[in-house]
C-alpha cells in the first residue's frame, strides 16, 4: 500500500495508511503526550492529552487516522493550554507521584495544579485494596485511563474481572459485582499491572521491597 504524506509541525512525514497521527508523529520523532493510549490496549481518545490541531480543529492524535495532505500542529498555543489544564486537573485529583512521565509533562507545560484549589473528586481518599497474594490496588493513584480494563477484557486477556463503575469525577475501577479479585474471575496475569501508568496497580513484592523488608 502506498504511503500517505502528512505534515506534522512542518515536517513532511510519509505515513503508512493505517497509522494514526500519533504513530506518524512518533515516526518523525515528534512527541505527543498521552495518558490513556498504550500499544497493547484498545484505549484511545479518553485522556484528551494528545489533542492536536488539524485544520483549525482539535483531534485526538491517538484515535485519528492519517489523511492525505493533512496538516497537523502538535504544539499550538491552544493545544498547549488544553494540555496544561488537563494535566493540572489530573494531578490535582490523583496521586501521580509515581508517574514520572506525567511529572515530566507537568514541568514541560508549566502545569500548576494548585491554581484550581482543593481536589473535588474524592479520589485521593481511596484506601489501598490488598485482596490477593500478588498485587495491590491503590486507586488514589488511578486517573481512569482504563488500560487495565482493556487488558483484562477485550484487549488482551478476555477475562473481564475488572469493571468500571460510577459516573463523572466519581467514576473508577472496580471488579465484577465489586467482589474480591479472585472471586471476580481474576487469573492474576498481571497484565493490568503491566499497562498501569500510575502505579495504582503495584506488585506486592515491590511494595514490600520499597518498605525495606524482605518478602
Amino acid at each position: 500500500m502506498s504511503r500517505v504524506a502528512v505534515v506534522i509541525d512542518g515536517l513532511l512525514v510519509q505515513a503508512e495508511p493505517d497509522w494514526t497521527v500519533l504513530e506518524a508523529a512518533r515516526s518523525a520523532g515528534v512527541e505527543i503526550p498521552t495518558l490513556c493510549h498504550h500499544e497493547r490496549t484498545g484505549t484511545e481518545g479518553i485522556c484528551r492529552l494528545c489533542m492536536v490541531e488539524v485544520a483549525g480543529r482539535m483531534e485526538p492524535a491517538c484515535a485519528t487516522r492519517v489523511r492525505p495532505g493533512m496538516v497537523v500542529n502538535t504544539r499550538g498555543a491552544a493545544v498547549e493550554q488544553l494540555r496544561r489544564t488537563v494535566l493540572e486537573l489530573v494531578a490535582l485529583e490523583t496521586n501521580v507521584e509515581y508517574d514520572d512521565e506525567l511529572s515530566g509533562w507537568m514541568e514541560e507545560y508549566g502545569a500548576d495544579p494548585t491554581r484550581w484549589g482543593e481536589p473535588l473528586a474524592g479520589r485521593r481518599q481511596r484506601k489501598p485494596l490488598a485482596d490477593n497474594p500478588f498485587f495491590v490496588r491503590e486507586y488514589d493513584k488511578c486517573y481512569n485511563c482504563r488500560r487495565c480494563l482493556d487488558a483484562c477484557g477485550e484487549g488482551i486477556q478476555g477475562v473481564w474481572a475488572l469493571a468500571f463503575t460510577g459516573r463523572g469525577a466519581e467514576a473508577g475501577v472496580t471488579t465484577t459485582f465489586d467482589l474480591e479479585l479472585a472471586e471476580a474471575g481474576c487469573i492474576f496475569c498481571g497484565n493490568c499491572v503491566e499497562v498501569c501508568p500510575t502505579g495504582a496497580l503495584v506488585p506486592l513484592e515491590e511494595l514490600r521491597a520499597a518498605k525495606g523488608g524482605p518478602s
Binding site: E39, R40, P133, F134, F135, I156, Q157, I187, F188, C189, G190, N191, V193, E194, V195, P203, E205, E206, R208, A209, P214, S215
Partner: peptide
C-alpha cells in the same frame, strides 16, 4: 526482571514476540 538488593521485585513483559507484552501469573508473580 527488576532487581533490587539481589531480589526480583517486579516482572514486566518485554514487548514484541512471542508474548507481545502479555504474561501470566506464573511468569509475573
Amino acid at each position: 526482571l527488576y532487581v533490587k538488593n539481589e531480589r526480583v521485585y517486579r516482572v514486566m513483559a518485554h514487548g514484541g514476540p512471542p508474548n507481545y507484552g502479555a504474561l501470566c501469573v506464573k511468569g509475573r508473580f
